[in-house]
């Protein structure tokens, strides 16, 4: 019957089907959905800019970032557009090359964290029983322990933390929030009809988890992953700032560390601490925007209400 295909109108607030015209480029479906959202597009553009800077760092700012190339604390000029540090290092070179290490640590650790979240959260939610109780307890304990002091104490015991150690410490202490979110979503999915159907038809557990559960929480995993990356970039900068990173490495955090240690504030050398802070904020802002975008796409009610205000 033809009219059965018509959308049933229960309430006017029902998720609206977008009637946007198709872009000419043949993009994959998820890409098109994301680019249809303004916030996500802004976030992606900023992120893309940083990615390009990270990839082409040696081209954009060639040279040794820790080498003395000018007088101490030179103001920004055509030659050194972000000025120089107390040691006469070029801040712009440090920022550009620091982008690379900050992004690698951020996305690398974020990825390790999300894997831990999936393993712990999904196991906890899917297996249930005693396993769930134990894992939930551990998760809740890690949630409530103050993260930064714990990370500082762990890093304090390591003699000279390299990037790998920092990543390991951050991963082991920062998985709890994502694990809890994924656990509750797994619980919902586990009790859904299609999982029950898969179970009764005798599908093995690993298949149910991989092909029924995980694909149905892609957006949640994506936003947890982005959240973890934001957290790691901020925390890594904080660790470097308090002197628990490798002071010879080049990251945004270490530039801030040297600014603080060299009394940049007292001498008025604002250019040594403003650029790295703005970079951290920009990347955090971009990732947050992408997360808001994902939220609006998966939860269309948020936009419907807003767009109809008169």
């Amino acid at each position: 019957m033809g009219q059965e295909k018509q959308i049933r109108m229960t309430t006017a607030l029902e998720p609206a089907k977008t009637t946007r015209s198709e872009p000419r480029l043949a993009l994959p479906g998820w890409m098109r959905t994301i680019l249809g959202n303004r916030k996500a597009t802004i976030g992606l553009l900023i992120l893309l800019m940083f990615l390009l800077v990270a990839i082409f760092a040696p081209v954009i700012a060639p040279g040794e970032p820790n080498k003395m190339v000018g007088r101490p604390h030179e103001r920004p000029s055509a030659e050194h557009i972000f000025g120089t540090s107390r040691q006469g290092q070029d801040i712009f070179t440090q920022i550009v090359q620091g982008t690379r290490s900050s992004l690698i640590v951020g996305f690398g650790t974020g990825t390790i964290i999300i894997f831990l979240c999936i393993i712990i959260g999904v196991t906890s939610g899917f297996v249930g029983g005693v396993v769930d109780e134990v894992l939930s307890l551990i998760t809740n304990v890690f949630l409530i322990l103050p993260g930064l002091p714990l990370i500082i104490v762990v890093a304090g015991w390591v003699e000279q933390p390299g990037p790998a150690t920092v990543m390991l410490v951050l991963s082991l202490t920062s998985w709890a929030f994502g694990a809890r979110v994924l656990r509750s979503q797994t619980l919902v999915l586990r009790n859904s009809d299609f999982v029950a159907a898969a179970r009764t038809s005798g599908e093995p557990t690993w298949r149910i988890v991989l092909f029924e559960i995980l694909p149905n929480m892609t957006s949640l995993v994506a936003s947890s992953w982005i959240g973890a990356v934001i957290f790691v970039i901020l925390t890594e900068a904080t660790l470097s700032f308090v002197g628990l990173g490798n002071p010879n490495a080049v990251t945004w955090g270490t530039t801030l560390y040297w600014a603080q240690n060299n009394q940049a504030l007292l001498t008025g050398a604002w250019w040594t601490f403003v650029p790295p802070g703005v970079c951290i904020a920009l990347i955090g802002f971009a990732l947050t925007m992408i997360n808001y975008g994902i939220d609006e796409i998966t939860n269309p009610r948020l936009t419907v209400e807003k767009s109809e205000k008169e």
Binding site: L234, A237, T238, F241, L256, A259, Q260, L265, L266, G268, W270, F273, V274, G277, I280, A281, L282, G284, F285, T288
Partner: peptide, 23 residues
């Protein structure tokens, strides 16, 4: 709030110290 929230806490502290304490 969204913009301020993107900056690291300690960085805001540095800016506050610089502006209100030193400048």
């Amino acid at each position: 709030a969204s913009v301020v929230g993107a900056f690291p806490f300690f960085w805001i502290a540095m800016v506050v110290l610089y502006l209100f304490g030193l400048v």
